[in-house]
Design a protein around this nucleic acid. Structure first.
Length: 964
RNA sequence: GCGAGGGUAGCUCAGUUGGCCAGAGCACACGGCUGAUAACCGUGAGGUCCCGGGUUCGAAUCCCGGCCCUCGCACCA
């Protein structure tokens, strides 16, 4: 075995080191050697105190007019347009809205730093029922008694109030955007564009007016689109009713009864038929309550429900044979037919379906087939009209028990009970809705469904399943009911012939309306007479030639507003482009904004979608994966998070979780994110602290002059930059987060920075080895700040303020470019060597720990390490021999000895296995503790400094010389 | 009921075309340091990879069947 000799660690020649001057520094007593060290210095605080500091940062950004500053600086670059989906201007923002805006901000900021001109124009959805309802409530006035213009003015005011509140809340998140000039669906320009979109759709025949049953909210007194419905538990009546047969057509016994079941007694007055399935078997059952016709499959259930003894059917026949039989409606003395319907099932009820064409979708359809009238004896408020006879004037819910009683008195009621089931409710006012046939305006979606589907092929869906989801959404979509019987919205821009009631779709009319709205806003619809909206030369009815028209009274569904934003915003703002590069919303918007935007766009813009890409995120849930709800008490309010932790923590949380799935947030998770934040912040702080005397313009060390470990770190940095850049480009921010978190915690804090301490602190301040380290620290800090800017906008800006930088650096890190991989620093061979050295380091630390547990050593500098390698074939000996001089600093021990070629390594208490053929031994370091660098060395080699090792004494002497 | 997505350590995430004892960071426990100090370093203990079958020499990864969560759709006479 031979002992490999190791040169004494000596500083490399550099500016900070000079040959010992003769007789220098005579005074060595009582020197405060700590003062001779280059300890980190920075004012960048360890404690973030974000809740207090962030508002100050916001003010600074405002003072520099950050948004416009960036826009001016990026003018002329290729555009990247993220089009903001407008939140509804009602109420405070919640976690979902905050998350959405933060994601958008990360994307936009990254796009800017990736070389794009990325304007961001935030917007608000300002019209709609909830705002109107709130305004009415505040005014404490019945809507019938108020002038629509006055109501609209109040709504306008109310919506703007919430716009202002939300704008401040969004700004507080650090979101960069044109907050001074957001888009609003109520601006005249927007309204004019929306009219044009509507006109383009109408001109192509995709808008029509028709009588159909639609969802109707009696509370809000308006029609609703399917998208405005939500299902909730409701207790309803469950009644069985018999209708006496009038004309049995010889198929069933005279005097039989047809039995139906319903959960909505109030629809009985509108009953105009009983539907049966042609293939279902029906039985004629002689019972104590008459001879009853019901489906055989449901007979048993029925008898149980109405408490009748079960009996066998006297006869059985197919539904088809029942067609044409008539029965009498005892409450109204009306005779109606039995009809056939494929929609009839034997899952519930009796297999005979009470049919009221005015109150059911399928009832309506089948009624059309049989030429049944559409009876709708219910008014806008859900109150029975005169057509309902004795029930006129009653609210339908109130009338229910009355109708049940009347049925009983008429001998029609066989049984009654209650049932809890899912029932449609108004998503705005949460009251049960009804199905009610009225005249409404529709978009004929069926007519262009195929165009919409084709357009979807030209969109990048992220994640990819968004395509399938959207396709399923569009496929088989029912016509879109767009009229609302309300005041707070864009009026349906249609003039109707006063003599024959035919609506006009004259393109020039739409142009005229748009022109007036553009100048005056849509209030003009209420202010001006119909004639004003006619084109030059007036309007002639296409049907009857009439020349007198009146204005449509309904307004448009708010989804039509936001669905027109691509035209109203992207086409009207010079800084934006149509189509948008990206739409980004929660996955529920497949049925909302993504859909409504696509529909208006493919019709009004020649089959083209309004977006090139659609990115969706999941919903916020709690740690157990349950949705956040008030009743569960697991709701996280972004305002609370900001108050307690700061917006950067919320932003980091957004980045940390994979938003394609549900995103969990809880106090526990927040704490974890805050910990990760602290690690990154402290790493930044340490980097900055060691750059206090570094000027990147004069002190930078060239690549080839860097120490080897420093070159290795530069290699690692390039790898991190590459991975982070790719993750950013793929919108995978959780990968950015994990990569940077790992890099800070492991590569930097635990390894590189720890190893560097000795060199940074003890070397001459301007020595080459210290400058070499600082050069890397500068590159790392600079790159870290850039990579963190889109996410930790506040903290990155703060750190940027403390970073020494070239004179021509921009005022904000948001104007920097993302770091680029510098291939000249990539060195795979070097990295492979150092990764092996790190393996040895791990093994050494394991043995050191054993010695530490036994109190043989405390600090690792109290130890020396012996490495035994068998030598020969093994590359380990060669590798270690090559790096022998640096090994003590790598292991942070005072000495390392390498023994090569022994038959077998010795063994004992503080031995351990290393990688390959290595054996590691830890012994106590010989020599004494250098007062300055704390390594164990031979002291007093230079007599002026008897308590220092040779290296430190040299550095101190040189310092004294410089001061002198 | 149908469709989509998901279910890997306490938490956030990796696990490439199936193949070394399933990984990382954080949190946790224990220890060190006191020259990053309301910091820093080390060591360690944590997993029936939702469950049950199957294919295979071999499955967290493929197939079948369940369960649970989220979103959407449909039904709700």
């Amino acid at each position: 075995m031979r002992v490999v000799p190791r040169a004494q660690p000596r500083p490399l020649p550099g500016r900070g080191f000079s040959v010992l001057p003769e007789g220098a520094a005579q005074m060595s007593e009582k020197i405060d050697y700590k003062a001779t060290l280059n300890m980190p210095r920075t004012d960048f605080p360890m404690r973030a105190n974000l809740p207090k500091r962030e508002p100050e940062q916001l003010k600074a950004w405002e003072e520099m007019d950050l948004y416009n500053l960036v826009q001016r600086a990026t003018a002329g670059r290729p555009k990247f347009v993220l089009h903001d989906g407008p939140p509804y201007a009602n109420g405070d923002i919640h976690l979902g809205t905050a998350l959405n805006k933060i994601l958008k901000d990360i994307i936009v900021k990254h796009a800017t730093m990736a070389g794009y001109d990325a304007p961001y124009v935030p917007g608000w959805d300002m019209h709609g029922l909830p705002i109107e309802l709130r305004a009415l409530k505040d005014m404490k006035i019945d809507r019938k008694q108020i002038d629509p213009l006055e109501l609209r003015a109040r709504c306008y005011e109310y919506a703007h109030h919430w716009l202002n509140v939300q704008r401040e809340q969004f700004k507080r998140l650090g979101v960069r955007g044109d907050w001074e000039n957001p888009y609003k669906t109520v601006t005249p320009e927007f309204e004019a564009k929306e009219v044009e979109v509507f006109g383009a759709m109408a001109a192509q025949g995709y808008i029509y007016r028709g009588l159909k049953p639609v969802y109707w909210c009696p509370h809000c007194e308006t029609a609703l689109a399917e998208a405005e419905i939500e299902y909730a538990e409701k207790t309803s009546f469950s009644i069985y009713v018999r209708f006496p047969v009038v004309d049995a057509r010889g198929r069933i016994p005279e005097g039989s009864y047809l039995v139906i079941w319903t959960t909505t007694p109030w629809t009985i007055p509108a009953n105009l038929a009983v539907a049966v399935h042609p293939e279902v078997e029906y039985g004629v059952y002689p019972t104590g309550k008459g001879t009853l016709v019901i489906a055989n499959a449901l007979a048993e259930k029925f008898f149980q429900a109405v408490d009748l003894p079960a009996v066998e059917p006297a006869a059985t026949l197919k539904g088809a044979e029942l067609e044409g039989i008539t029965y009498r409606h005892l409450l109204y003395d009306r005779v109606s037919p039995v009809i056939l319907g494929e929609h009839v099932t034997t899952e519930d009820g009796t297999g005979l379906v009470h049919t009221a064409p005015g109150h059911g979708h399928e009832d309506f359809e089948v009624g059309q087939k049989y030429g049944l009238p559409v009876l709708n004896p219910v008014n806008d408020q859900g109150v029975f009209t005169a057509e309902a006879g004795p029930f006129a004037g009653m609210f339908i819910e109130k009338a229910n028990p009355e109708i049940v009683r009347a049925l009983d008195e008429a001998g029609m009621l066989l049984g009654q009970g209650k049932i809890r089931h899912q029932y449609a409710h108004c998503w705005r006012c949460k009251n049960p809705v009804i199905y009610r046939a009225t005249v409404q305006w529709f978009v004929r979606v069926e007519g262009f469904m195929d165009i919409a589907k084709e357009a979807m092929n030209h969109v990048r869906w992220i994640p990819e399943w968004g395509y399938n989801r959207m396709y399923a959404m569009i496929d088989g979509l029912a016509d879109w009911c767009i009229s609302r019987q309300r005041a707070w919205g864009l009026p349906i821009p249609i003039l109707t012939c006063s003599s024959c009631d035919e609506p006009s779709f004259e393109p020039k009319m739409f142009e005229k309306i748009a022109e007036i709205f553009r100048a005056e806003g849509s209030d003009a619809w209420w202010k001006r007479p119909a004639e004003d909206f006619m084109p030059e030369g007036g309007l002639t009815c296409a049907k009857c030639g009439g020349r007198t028209f009146h204005k449509e009274k309904d307004i448009l569904d708010v989804w039509f507003d936001s669905g027109s934003s691509h035209a109203g915003v992207l086409e009207t703002r010079p800084e934006l482009t149509w189509p948008a590069d990206l739409y980004l919303e929660g996955s529920d918007q497949h049925r909302g904004w993504f859909k409504s935007s696509l529909l208006t766009s493919v019709v009004a813009r020649g089959g083209r979608p309004p977006y090139k890409g659609v990115l969706t995120h999941g919903f916020t849930v709690d740690e157990q994966g349950r949705k956040m709800s008030k009743s569960l008490g697991n709701v996280v309010d972004p305002a609370d998070v900001i108050k307690k932790y700061g917006a950067d923590i919320l932003r980091l949380w957004v980045a940390s979780t994979d938003y394609r799935h549900d995103m969990a947030l809880s106090e526990n998770i927040l704490k974890q994110v805050a910990d990760a934040y602290r690690k990154m912040r402290n790493t930044l702080r340490y980097l900055l602290g060691n750059l206090y005397d570094f000027n990147p313009e004069t002190d930078m060390v060239e690549r080839d002059d860097l120490l080897e470990i420093d070159r290795w770190q530069m290699h690692r940095l390039q790898e991190v930059i590459g991975k982070v850049s790719e993750a950013y480009r793929n919108y995978e921010y959780h990968v950015v987060y994990h990569t940077l978190n790992n890099y800070c915690a492991v590569d930097l804090s635990a390894v590189y920075l720890d190893i560097l301490k000795d060199r940074l602190y003890t070397s001459g301040a301007t020595s080459r080895e210290r400058r070499s380290a600082q050069t890397v620290l500068y590159h790392v800090a600079d790159a870290l700040i850039r990579m963190l800017t889109p996410i930790l906008s506040f903290t990155a800006e703060e750190a940027y303020g403390y970073l020494p930088k070239p004179a021509d650096s921009p005022a904000t890190c948001q104007l920097l470019m993302m770091p680029q991989v510098d291939p000249t620093y990539l060195d795979e061979d070097l990295a492979a060597e150092w990764e092996k050295l790190m393996e040895v380091r791990d093994a050494v630390q394991a043995v050191l720990e054993r010695a530490r547990v036994d109190k043989k050593i405390g600090s690792s500098q109290e130890a020396a390490v012996h490495l035994y390698a068998s030598g020969g074939e093994g590359a380990w000996a060669e590798l270690l021999e090559k790096h022998l001089a640096e090994l003590p600093t790598i292991f942070i021990v005072s000495d390392v000895k390498l023994f090569v070629g022994g038959q077998s390594a010795p063994s004992g208490t503080y031995f351990g296995e290393g990688p390959g053929d290595l054996t590691v031994e830890v012994v106590r370091a010989s020599g004494d503790k250098c007062e300055r660098c704390w390594n164990y060395r031979e002291l007093g080699v230079i007599e002026q400094h008897p308590t220092l090792c040779e290296r430190c004494a040299g550095v101190v002497l040189a310092q004294n010389l410089e001061e002198a």
